[in-house]
Nucleic acid binder design. Sequence first.
DNA 1: GGTATTTACTTTAGGCTTAAAATATTATAC
DNA 2: GTATAATATTTTAAGCCTAAAGTAAATACC
Lengths: 153, 153
Amino acid sequence: MVNHYDANTRQHLRVWLKLLKTSTSIETALRERLKKECSTTLPRFDVMAALDHHTDGLRMTELSDFLMVSNGNVTGIVSRLAESGLIERTQDTHDRRAQKVCLSPSGQAEFKQLAQRHAQWIDDIMQPLNTEESNTLLTLLERLANHKVNKND
Amino acid sequence: MVNHYDANTRQHLRVWLKLLKTSTSIETALRERLKKECSTTLPRFDVMAALDHHTDGLRMTELSDFLMVSNGNVTGIVSRLAESGLIERTQDTHDRRAQKVCLSPSGQAEFKQLAQRHAQWIDDIMQPLNTEESNTLLTLLERLANHKVNKND
DNA sequence: GGTATTTACTTTAGGCTTAAAATATTATAC
DNA sequence: GTATAATATTTTAAGCCTAAAGTAAATACC
């Protein structure tokens, strides 16, 4: 029962809930397809995408900075991906604390497939908006994102 | 490296990533404020909101249906909320498998505070959009959400 | 050169999440 | 009335996530 809020607040809550629900429901669809069609997960995909983008590898800390998740989180995902043989860890010769992580050849091949499917899914999901509409959506979302960032200073 | 996709696909990926990032970043801000200012979590808030909405209580399965999360998930959150004295569980008299869950008096009082703060945060986050813009955003999001739902049939 | 601080990373504790198995109870079929 | 199926819920196993503590190595300071 939200009716004791004023009309403006109700509208704000409505928009936020729709934003959350839309994003979550697309994300859930992607997770399900990654699991059922590709036997992988979104966090694994995200790590592989980061490594595909940085072709000469990343350190663990660079990886967690890039993905904006905690250090310990990356440790777990990377070690499971390494178990699967999709990524390789090599010791840094100059700094024995550090290691460089990159996609293995099979990881590269695997990601190529994943990325293609992923792009098709997104293409399909975004179909209902034409170029102008998706530009409008992008602009409105950017306004929200930028405002929020400023509040976090 | 997304440049081997056509312009349309690139635009779709860009919009989806912005949608995901905006939603996640707002959600993260809410989680942080709930934790730091209210010593609680978003899942706890969601359960309390559902029970506040259904004043005569809900069964565990009704609760997990309403929140669209798994049964076992609700079990954990509800038992932690019960430990904190914020909700009460009563056995169903006619069905000994079932129980009815509702907010305790202190849970109701607590949620009243939480909901007010939550609404203020959302109000603040949505400030950059005027009524017309937020209506546009709502409409575009609804188009995406509806399309996605249809694909899941 | 030796101590203190910083840096790179892992481990731990605890909560969230799911799917699948397990339990207990109710309802159905015969 | 008893066997079977359905329902309500919890438990379990495994991954994801964070903050905080721990470990090891590099750097800075003196």
